[in-house]
Amino acid sequence: MKHSKPTERTKVKVVLPGDTVSLDVTTPGITLGPGLIQAGDSISCTKAGFLVRSGSIYWVENDQKRYIPETGEHVVGRISGKGGEFYRVDIGSAHQAILPFLAFENATKKNRPNLNIGDLIYARVALANKDMDPELQCLNPMNNKADGFGKLEGGMVLKCSLRYCQRLLTQETDICKLLGQVLQFEVSIGMNGRVWLSSDTIKHISLVYNVLKQAEALNNSECKALVNKLAV
């Protein structure tokens, strides 16, 4: 999946729930992201973390692990059941997600996807709001093609914080690049705190799993040191 590097991201300050943010609410174009809410004339925080801005978008960053589904995000899920015309998928959110049989490339009423309970998939959140079970799709809505979504074969799943997944996806952390210089592996990064990874041998898969797990708490120079130790 192609992802462009976001515009310059600056940390403003540490905030706690209930703190007010001194921004002029009348300034047009200000967008409030997760963790911020407008109450009348003031903006207050609902999460503890770093208040971050990128352009005129503000949000609060923290290290939470629990996923709240958002439309458009890509997730790694596990088929947990089969309903009438859909699969039930566990994506780590409060409610199991729904993946309709028709939400696959070239799917028709006669041509059903062949997934079983326990299979891993990479999907896109088609619809999410707090009152309904989230809905997934295994195709790109722009061109109705699979585009990398669908069943994930073999490999292993790493569970981590949502923020780490973001850092992996935007390559804010160099660990994937550094590790890729030592051995071949592939990853599918879900915004739901789940990263699917695979390599050629079991030993390598286990290695990639443990390295990515450790690298969550490391900065780029520490990542470099970790990978250098492996190459030896």
Binding site: D90, G92, D119, W196, I202
Partner: peptide, 19 residues
């Protein structure tokens, strides 16, 4: 449900144990 293992993980752990 969140802690249940996928088929991929189960197969990997068993294959690993065989080695």
């Amino acid at each position: 449900k969140e802690l249940e293992l996928s088929t991929n993980e189960k197969e990997l752990i068993i294959s690993g144990l065989k080695e």
